[in-house]
Write a protein that binds this DNA or RNA. Structure first.
Lengths: 334, 334
DNA sequence: CTGAAAGCGCTTACAG
DNA sequence: CTGAAAGCGCTTACAG
């Protein structure tokens, strides 16, 4: 059987209260008693029960990661790794553990079962299940990377439309007029931002856009490959392509390699995110740098404030981004 | 205040036991009562307390992810994303949530606090802290990707030495005799396997190896870049390089791009892992394919058996791997 | 089918 | 500084 605080108390001839206080570094206990308790606890192999403790304290010490897209979506996308890095950086001193679920069936457990003190909502999209339940739940939460207007939850996200505007404008300035957009799904806020930025750039420069160059898919490499295939298979293919993230750009690179297309001589490509891999690509990718870590850090401090009872209101923090030019873009030929 | 089972019971004029049974789909309750309970529970916004429940059931419904390397190590390395995919695939029907910790300080919480029903141990290395405590803990666990002999915990891992043997032999057959090895740290079981495989290949082919070509670093892109720099800066640089994983190979690619070295004409490179990115690299990477998902699935079923009380013994399952030739290797010139 | 009761393992006022 | 007591919110034999 598992040893409890009571058994330690009996063995030592003190009360459970004392053992509890000794083990938890609560003041009122002699150093001597505290030490005796501790030693014995170790010897007996005592393990506190997280359940019992949180039942009374009403705290779990857990942060939930709400991931409607599924675990692999997140583990596979450097966006989240970087953001998590930022989050962990600020929250780590507080000693939290992180719990995430891998499928819709389990989402609810997270916030409907009081097993977390707060939640980070990743990759939320329009129409995701449980979203409203989520809102009515009283678990403090902050969403990162997206922003669902109707949701009364603070959000931290990059300036997707501004970044795309910058990137596409740069391409236009280089002489490109036929620019493909390999976007994510329109249920994603990010995709909507990209689309909007793309359009503003064309508007701004007085160039007419061709809607057949606007393709929606997923934020993965496979889509980049497939999308490039579609774009370049057109009768009048684009000379440049804007990708909604760096993963998609990797897919475009593969297409180029397979077909002998040279980047940037034959095709300019721009990514979004500036994931670590961007500068490791051949050639290094011109992309929109996004302060992922900073965003994570910000989300974390927001969450902490919320968990401490400080209301944050319906904050919507937009982080500025900037184009970093590497070697995948060039002026249009001829 | 949060609504409890008791309040529902009072409101309905039944006992808490009945409410509990109704909510948990336990037999002995009339359909009618069950429905009334459920409806009211929903109306009142009832949320079960995970803590209270697991205090009595002794189950948490959580799987712990023990990651001595830290969260970002894992999120940044496709090895784990793929393995997790496999794990989740088999365990998902069981409705588990996953909890991981991000820093050493929190490791212990996982297994010393009974907050998980089982654990997956990732990226374990020689000398990692808490390892022995871990063993004496009675939480069912399985390690994946490494294998610490002294630990009485079942392990699932790829044939690192066999894979490296295959790869290096292939390089030798292509005429390469000076082959660099960009390895991970020697505290990693994987690195040891790679080193061993490398050596056997040289032995097998009766070629003398040059130990100055054996470099240890980390399993990240940055190390690949740095390692390649060191290797190629030698007076007599290698004509091929074996990388302990695909991330390291990406670093070598970057070095090559920066210095104008052509892959595979000037330098052959082989990776290990066959991460999704491998076929997206320019040129596509020749690498040792590792059945990551299958490994994860296997680890999961092992863990499940353990959690159901079936002892697994000191299993040590080694998955076979195979070299997949793509376009980053070529016969040695002249 | 339903209820009263005990108990899971802890923490925390409340007294002393 | 220390202890007795109550209670956190549930589940589960045990009776009926």
């Amino acid at each position: 059987m598992r040893v409890t605080i009571k058994e330690i108390a009996n063995a030592l001839g003190v009360s459970p209260s004392t053992v509890s206080r000794a083990l938890n570094n609560v003041p009122g206990v002699t150093e001597e008693v505290r030490n005796r308790v501790r030693r014995l606890a170790r010897e007996m192999g005592y393990k506190p029960s997280a359940a019992a403790r949180s039942l009374v304290t009403k705290r779990t010490g857990n942060i939930g990661l709400f991931i409607p897209r599924g675990l692999s979506f997140v583990m596979t996308n450097p966006f989240f790794a970087e953001v998590m890095e930022g989050i962990v950086g600020v929250l780590d001193g507080d000693g939290y553990n992180y719990v995430f679920c891998s499928s819709p069936r389990q989402y609810r457990k997270l916030f409907v079962t009081n097993m977390v003190d707060g939640m980070i909502l990743f990759a939320l999209r329009l129409g995701d299940p449980y979203i409203d339940e989520l809102e009515s739940s009283d678990v403090p939460a902050v969403v990162v990377g997206s922003y669902i207007e109707s949701l009364g939850i603070p959000a931290v996200r990059p300036d997707d439309s501004g970044g795309t505007f910058q990137a596409v404008s740069h391409l236009i300035r280089q002489g490109h007029t036929r620019i493909g957009l390999l976007n994510g799904p329109l249920s994603s806020y990010k995709s909507r931002g990209c689309l909007q930025g793309y359009r503003s750039a064309f508007l701004e420069h007085g160039i007419e856009e061709d809607d057949s160059l606007l393709l929606c898919g997923e934020f993965v490499m496979d889509w980049g490959l497939e999308g490039a295939r579609r774009l370049m298979g057109m009768k009048n293919p684009p000379t440049a392509v804007m990708c909604a993230n760096d993963l998609i750009a990797q897919g475009v690179y593969r297409y180029a390699f397979e077909t002998g297309l040279r980047i940037p001589e034959d095709l300019s490509v721009v990514g979004f995110g500036d994931f670590p891999v961007a500068s490791y690509m051949t050639p290094p990718l011109t992309t929109v740098h996004t302060p992922l870590r900073e965003m994570g850090a910000r989300a974390a401090s927001l969450l902490r404030a919320l968990m401490q009872g400080e209301g944050a209101g319906t904050t919507n923090i937009v982080f500025p981004v900037r184009l970093v030019e590497r070697q995948s873009t060039a002026a249009k030929h001829g």
